[in-house]
Design a protein around this nucleic acid. Structure first.
Lengths: 244, 244
DNA sequence: CGACTATTTGATAGGACTCAACCTCCGTGG
DNA sequence: CCACGGAGGTTGAGTCCTATCAAATAGTCG
């Protein structure tokens, strides 16, 4: 199944017409290499990107060079949806692995959303999920201890990967360095290292070869104080298939 | 001018028909008292809320009782736009002052967006601005020192207030307690107090009677390392007024 | 005036950072 | 085939920022 459809299928089931419309909209493919910038800050853009395969992060830099990773982009996720409405992008997008992307003019996406109510709803749902994840990240860096923050990230990513069917048992690909993790969690690389060791010592996770394995989900969830409800993986759309 | 139109006018200028459509859509008014919950976590909802007058916060609680404020809601801002697509709300909304709200069924909003391209674009712009602000908050709590975080919040809110014309000179209403500030910035109330004193001693701000005054914007901006570009207050929509 | 909430101050503790060095793994190239 | 360089990971020591605990001082309201 097409990654984007697989992702949106969590929310709604599409008619074959809708599937066709989505697939033909997502037909313009681009390949990018690992560790390249897919989109830069400060530039104007007029097309959205959907990740089909691979792993990316959205990130922001501070004047002093510090970096914050804002979100992890998994297959099926959209980036830059609606950028054409902005004067400039306020963050950059970095491919952590070789990636396959679909490039869609914002205008085309707008037409698609006007035409198909269910697709419109699904894309808005995806937007709300993104916002919810952002909210949890704020809670995460704002309120939790380092080890909890890390546990939370690992759990969240596990649930997201599972929802799109890319886990293998209790493990999933996590192509981040310890420095990356630090920039995502707001902690220094050194402390990431020590926190990882702590989690390993407690036999909660294994992490190596760009892959994370959860050894004890129940305890990791408890440590992270995570309630995956905010990912809204249970939402189901029952509305009309066409615009009213 | 209607607060919502004033806010969206940063992005686009509406025709009188669009203004009429927006105003009649926002005609169902609700008043709420200061310090009451406007919306609770975990409940399902099917209408969006637009703040017309007053000041609210979106917030989340952790199992241990800790609270994180996710965002400040100013007049003209929408909350819960699209909630009907979710199974449940993942955060609550708290009125910090007496507030006047417009309640709009999500379906009505959906119709409005299908009918008017410019309104659709404006509401999507507002969504992207919200997401951009979330992103900055992640950077803020993740990367900056306490005093910078606070300076950042004060500057951001100043720019947002100014954009909707509710500043008075260099001051604006900020009806938050020191505890609230702590929950927004991820710091303890005690440290909020000391950080405030620090900012006051440097003659950067004055804060009292629920009002914040910026005494030296230039230096405060520098301290906060803030570039208000991410608020996208310069974006201007030039597209068509009706659906394609 | 008591009961509360909000703010302030002092002292202490602890989580996380910084600095610095060392190690391992790999791809490159002489 | 091995020297070299770089990126990523690990470890130790010392320091700093911020939290916690405790208590005192306002300010508010019925």
């Amino acid at each position: 199944m097409h990654p984007v459809i697989r992702k949106l299928s969590t929310f709604a089931t599409f008619s074959s017409e809708e599937v066709g419309a989505l697939e033909s909209t997502l037909a313009d493919l681009v390949e990018v290499r690992a560790n390249t910038l897919v989109a830069r800050e400060d530039e104007h853009a007029d097309h959205a990107l959907f990740l089909l395969e691979g792993f990316m992060c959205r990130q922001k830099f501070l004047p002093n060079g510090d970096r914050q990773i804002l979100s992890l982009v998994l297959p099926g996720d959209g980036c830059d949806v609606g950028v054409s409405l902005l004067d400039r992008r306020d963050h950059s997008i970095l491919a952590k692995t070789n990636c396959s992307l679909a490039k869609v003019p914002d205008v085309t996406l707008d037409h698609l959303m006007v035409r198909y109510a269910r697709i419109r709803a699904a894309l808005r749902w995806a937007t709300m999920q993104r916002e919810a994840i952002f909210g949890e990240w704020i809670v995460n860096v704002g309120q939790r201890l380092a080890i909890q923050r890390m546990a939370h990230l690992f759990c969240e990513t596990y649930y997201r990967c599972r929802a799109i069917g890319i886990t293998e048992g209790n493990s999933y690909a996590l192509p981040l360095t310890q420095t990356d993790l630090g920039d995502a969690l707001g902690m220094s690389p050194v402390h990431v290292n020590r926190t990882l060791q702590d989690l390993r010592k407690q036999r909660l996770i294994a992490f190596g070869d760009k892959r994370l394995t959860i050894l004890n989900l129940k305890e990791l969830v408890e440590l992270a104080q995570i309630d995956p409800t905010y990912l809204h993986l249970e939402a189901r759309f029952e509305g009309q298939g066409v615009a009213a």
